Amino acid sequence: MKSAMRAAIPAAALAALTFGQCALAQSSAQLYGDVDAFVGAKKALGAKTAFVLGNGGATASFWGIKGTEDLGAGYQAIFELESYFSVQNGTYGRFAGDGFFSRNAWVGVNAPWGRLVAGQIGPLYWNATIFYNPFFNSFVFSPAVIHTYVAVNGQGVGGGGGEWSNTVTYNSALVGGLQINAQYAFGGAAGQPGQNKWAGQLVYRNSNLSANVTYQQIKFNNAPGDFAATAPGFSTQSAVQAGASYEVGPVKLYGQYQYVSNAIASGGYHVNFGQLGAAIRLGLGSVLVSDGYSKSGGARGEMRNTWSAGYDYPLSKRTTVYGAVLGDHASRLSSGYTVGAGIRTLF
């Protein structure tokens, strides 16, 4: 009896190990993120110079967990949880009151017909803004991000540069280089079914060319954190952006155009924005240059011009050092600038 038990125990262990390996082959989870810090000097528009050890000169620091489970027949269950943190003081979030998983928190399914997810999700308009400028998603050095999401004189796009809460997003399968994406965010306010955000996007990609057209509309009325909170009488903002990038030899060219229309009881107005940029490989690194210009029309007439130049140098596949300078000019405000150097590592 004891001999039979001794023989059965290794057999059971082997069966458990085999089952575990099978399960692992059908599902996975991954820990990842980046840590980015820079030192420099910053003078915001209309303010005084401050010397800073800042977070996210190239990309905001964050960590995340994502996973998949194979459901068979070409279907996968998927999830993603991502949290921002400030590398200079160790606090979570981008600002006081930011949620723990404020970067992304969603669950959904991959299928032969595309992807459908629900939760807190990055806006399609945000993705359009960051992928078609050489400074990507930098709130410190990217003119495109600053003009779109760091508003002065009533310019900029509402809905937040961060993720949309209470959101459903559909991404179609890629067919012939084309993809269609759609997004809807519920307002969640009782008695206000029309308070929502929605967006649609058409994307084209091939080996050298990438282009997109994205439309976004928001109808949140004085919701905290939204554009409407600083615009009394706000009812609707509509924004459309077209962007493209093209790579030829050592040069990658970027261009964007954006039109934003604001419906406000005291008098609506619109804003035109354009950005041109380039990433030029030089040695092992790249020279980055970008210039963005915004001009308000309708009931307003403000302008803003922001330029930026920098250099990225890879120390390895995961770690990059960088330096950049930015100049900022806007109507009725003293000029601003940022100069800094930093290091970014992925994990």
Rank of each mutant, 00 (worst) to 15 (best):
R281Y: 03
G191D: 14
Q216N: 10
N133T: 05
G268N: 04
Y313D: 11
G97N: 07
G336S: 12
I264W: 01
I121W: 01
Y257G: 10
Y322I: 11
Q76Y: 12
G156L: 06
R103C: 02
T49I: 12
A111G: 13
N221R: 11
S83K: 01
I146Q: 01
L53H: 09
F101Y: 05
Y254D: 01
S165M: 05
A111M: 11
G200D: 08
Y32E: 07
A231Y: 02
H329C: 07
G267F: 04
I343K: 01
K42V: 10
F136I: 11
N196P: 01
L14I: 13
G119F: 02
Q76A: 14
A199C: 04
A47M: 08
G187E: 06
S3Y: 14
A16S: 09
R332Y: 15
L253M: 09
L333I: 03
Y311F: 15
V168E: 11
V251P: 04
K219M: 07
V271A: 04
T91N: 07
Y269N: 01
R344K: 09
Q192I: 12
R103N: 04
V248H: 15
G177R: 05
F19N: 14
S83W: 01
V150K: 12
P314S: 05
S207E: 12
A231M: 09
W164I: 10
S86H: 05
I280H: 05
S61I: 01
E247L: 09
A29Y: 13
F220A: 01
A324M: 04
G90R: 06
A77K: 10
V260Y: 02
G156N: 10
A37K: 04
R103D: 02
S238H: 09
A265D: 13
A96E: 10
M1Y: 09
A189K: 12
P143I: 03
L116F: 00
A309R: 07
G176H: 14
T18W: 06
N305G: 13
A173K: 14
L24V: 09
A189T: 10
Q120R: 15
V321D: 03
S142H: 00
Q88D: 14
G160W: 02
F79H: 06
E69I: 11
I343Y: 02
G154N: 03
F139E: 11
G327H: 06
A324F: 00
E80R: 04
A173R: 13
I78M: 09
Q30C: 02
Q217N: 14
N110W: 08
E302P: 03
L178Q: 15
Y322K: 10
R344W: 01
Y84N: 02
T49P: 11
P232A: 13
G74A: 10
E163I: 04
